[in-house]
């Protein structure tokens, strides 16, 4: 069990916050129709970088949907995340082709250098590591996506230098 409703994180939504305003605009545009859920979640994920419980609760209420239904949708799609993903994200493909071409070595390098396992974020929230099963770019294996940029045929030994240069770390 994760989200005890009694222990809520600090308030994220407030009327003066621009992201809140944009979210509410998206909800308004959907006219509170339940079938707009995915679209609204998409907007929210884009703005907040993840879906805090408070935001999910707000959306469920506004679209007249049961809490558990919305939570179910959020956890069904890999695109949505309940946790902060880090300022920069590095997504390592572990699909068959990338796996064969060294995805595990890349993950090992990441663990050695940043002490991060898939799904984890550095303490300063600068870098988050994720894995995906086949990005549909098998010809570029092993493929890694840093923020929105695909890094093709990454040599595992270059993992740290590529991540550092792309994320502007020292």
């Amino acid at each position: 069990m994760t989200g005890s409703t009694k222990t809520e994180e600090p308030k994220i939504l407030n009327a003066d916050d621009s992201r809140t305003k944009l979210l509410n605009a998206a909800i308004k545009k959907s006219k509170g129709r339940p079938d707009a859920l995915i679209q609204v979640l998409h907007t929210a994920q884009g703005m907040f970088g993840y879906l805090p419980l408070e935001v999910i609760r707000h959306i469920a209420h506004a679209l007249h949907l049961p809490a558990s239904r919305v939570y179910g949708v959020v956890t069904f799609y890999h695109f949505f995340s309940l946790k902060q993903k880090g300022e920069h994200t590095c997504l390592v493909c572990t699909g068959t082709a990338c796996y064969v071409k060294g995805a595990q070595e890349i993950l090992d390098q990441i663990e050695d250098h940043y002490h991060l396992k898939p799904g984890q974020v550095t303490e300063d929230n600068k870098l988050g590591i994720q894995v995906a099963r086949c990005l549909g770019a098998c010809g570029l294996a092993p493929a890694v996506v840093i923020d929105d940029e695909v890094i093709p045929k990454l040599n595992p030994e270059d993992t740290q230098s590529v991540i550092d240069s792309k994320t502007g770390a020292a």
Partner: peptide, 14 residues
């Protein structure tokens, strides 16, 4: 199976 926001059943609001 979850209740509400993966909330313990005893704390469910619905």
């Amino acid at each position: 199976i979850i209740s509400d926001f993966d909330t313990p059943w005893g704390e469910s609001e619905s």
